[in-house]
């Protein structure tokens, strides 16, 4: 069953330097129980699209230009504030990158958890406290009952992120959006958090959107991957197909830029030349053309359409066949 369907979503920001076209018409659907990885570099629009789903973009600077975000059939963009509040945090939970700025420093962890439980689920104070302690032990925090009285600054980065996860799953949501949840953490702590979310996803049958710039983390977690560049989904497909048989030159470049621990070292990294485009002055054609080894005149004219290449894998590139041929050669 389709849980979330995004159609032709476009988001822009009015800034002093001009209009930033952060998301430029993206469409995809997410099935119940699916784990979707969204990869892309800074400014690719991966976080902004998630904030649009949660309706956390602040007007008037941010504007959803076009599109629909259908969650279980309802277009979230048409809901009023009150109706949206019943979805946000209740049916869709969100985990942010930086737990220290997302948790309120003047309230205890227990208070913040109980607040969510009482507001959304109408639990009594006592029941909320019991439930909060259960949640903390569910996310692997030792001495959960005592920890309810801790303030965020008394916890380590990994523990704070566990609290954020507890908050996100507190109301038993069906969809959880995790925006770079391990980027601020050390690798050994990242491994703990990834293992935790994998376990919760399985046990609670959660649908997850995991946003990350780290292709390694996504490889171990996701079933489906969206690769974003300059506000477009340039390639989308099953995780194996994306990593083993990428069709978009940007995906190929991104994978080539990474040194890999499982390969012998030798030679230079295949870096992508140049840098991402200025989002206030996007070119009329494919935004990757200026950095692309396959680019031709055609690429400057207009954004290529979404082309299905089979097995649920799609790409927006005129030259994807050349990419496949270049790899075979």
């Amino acid at each position: 069953m389709t849980m979330l369907e995004i159609r032709d979503l476009a988001v822009s920001f009015a800034t002093e330097g001009g209009t930033v076209r952060a998301v430029n018409g993206i469409s995809y659907a997410l099935k119940e129980g699916e784990v979707l990885g969204v990869v892309g570099e800074s400014g690719s629009g991966k976080s902004v699209h998630a904030l649009a789903v949660m309706q956390l973009l602040s007007p008037p600077a941010a504007r959803v230009e076009t599109g629909e975000i259908r969650f279980r059939g309802t277009d979230l963009l048409r809901l009023d504030d009150r109706a949206m509040r019943a979805v946000r945090g209740r049916q869709i939970g969100m985990i942010f990158q930086d737990p220290i700025s997302s948790l309120n420093p003047v309230y205890t962890v227990g208070f913040q958890l109980c607040e969510v439980l009482r507001l959304h689920l109408g639990l009594s104070r006592r029941n909320a406290t019991t439930c909060a302690a259960e949640l903390l032990s569910l996310v692997g925090i030792p001495d959960a009952r005592q920890r309810l009285a801790s303030y965020p600054h008394e916890l380590s980065g990994g523990m704070r992120q566990r609290v954020m996860i507890a908050l996100a799953i507190a109301c038993n949501p069906s969809l959880v959006i995790a925006d770079e949840p391990t980027t601020a953490l050390d690798v050994t702590i990242q491994a703990q958090i990834v293992a935790l979310i994998k376990r919760l996803q399985r046990d609670m049958n959660l649908t997850v959107i995991w946003i990350s710039h780290d292709l390694g983390v996504i490889a171990g977690l996701a079933q489906t991957v969206n690769v974003m560049y300059a506000g477009h989904i340039v390639e989308r497909g099953p995780v194996r197909s994306i990593y083993k048989d990428p069709r978009h030159p940007y995906t190929v470049g991104l994978l080539g830029s990474l040194p890999r621990l499982d390969e012998t070292v030798g030679g230079r990294l295949r870096s992508i030349p140049g840098r991402p485009p200025d989002m206030t002055q996007l070119p009329p054609g494919c935004p990757f053309a200026a950095r692309c080894p396959q680019a031709s005149e055609r690429c400057g004219a207009g954004m290529p359409p979404v082309e299905d290449v089979g097995d649920g894998h799609s790409v927006r590139c005129w030259h994807w066949r050349d990419v496949v041929a270049a790899r075979a050669a």
Binding site: S156, G158, M159, D186, V187, T188, I189, Q190, A191, Q192, V194, A195, D214, L215, G216, V217, I218, A219, G220, V239, R240, Y243, K244, L255, L258, R260, L261, D262
Partner: peptide, 27 residues
């Protein structure tokens, strides 16, 4: 050993097959 095993490899097959040593607690 733990540090190396904690680093995710950008390869879904390898990631599924690798043993991950998850260190308990914090430094």
């Amino acid at each position: 050993q733990a540090l190396i095993s904690a680093i995710p490899v950008p390869d879904p097959d390898l990631e599924a097959a690798r043993e991950h040593i998850v260190l308990e607690g914090d430094m």
